[in-house]
């Protein structure tokens, strides 16, 4: 790995962590847990298109681990990892298909993040009824995914000359 790339991935992790924190400070609009913009996903979408899927996975996992250690605990880490792994897997596969643009990739990432967290919540609480949150989260995840996908697409286009 080139020094420039290492430095850039380090910056990406830092940015994703800041975005995680910024997002946690946005007050909840509706009383449904899990509704969020998914700001850190902006970094992941960008890396996925600009650098590569392996680097994206590394940055995402390190971000989840660091954010959980700073602001959460072991249990919150399990939830974040469930969401991140499912979301990344979906985005990477969808991108490999080359059928969709980064907007759909980001939407699937957002929605799968919610699905992963709800699945984890069902498992932990041993209550299948927790899945009743899912319909609203599908909608919010899609809207958030479109926003992140649009911004991500613009970034990829505008930073065209950067090579990592």
């Amino acid at each position: 790995m080139k020094t420039k790339k290492v430095a850039f991935l380090g910056l990406s992790i830092a940015l994703a962590m800041i975005l995680s924190f910024v997002e946690s400070q946005i007050p909840a609009l509706v009383a449904i847990p899990g509704i969020k913009v998914g700001l850190p996903n902006l970094v992941m979408v960008f890396l996925l298109y600009k650098v590569g899927w392996k680097e994206t996975v590394i940055v995402s996992i390190i971000r989840v681990a660091l954010v959980s250690m700073l602001f959460g605990n072991v249990q919150t880490m399990a939830f974040s990892i469930a969401g991140a792994v499912l979301s990344l897997t979906g985005m990477i596969l969808l991108k490999k298909l080359e059928l969709f643009s980064c907007i759909a990739v980001s939407v699937v990432g957002g929605v799968l993040h919610n699905v992963g967290q709800i699945a984890m919540a069902c498992l932990v609480t041993q209550t299948i009824g927790v899945a009743t949150y899912l319909p609203v989260l599908l909608i919010s995840g899609t809207v958030a995914g479109v926003v992140i996908g649009l911004i991500g697409g613009m970034l990829v286009k505008r930073l065209d000359k950067f090579k990592f």
Binding site: S24, A31, P33, G72, T76, M120, T125, Y133
Partner: peptide
């Protein structure tokens, strides 16, 4: 629980109709 922001059970509002729920995933409580 130490959960950040929006997923906290204290932010999940008031429930009064069937199937509505408050989830505190950290304490495995519903």
């Amino acid at each position: 629980c130490p959960t950040l922001g929006k997923t906290r059970c204290t932010h999940q509002g008031k429930i009064s109709r069937t199937t509505e729920k408050i989830t505190c995933r950290i304490n495995k409580l519903v």
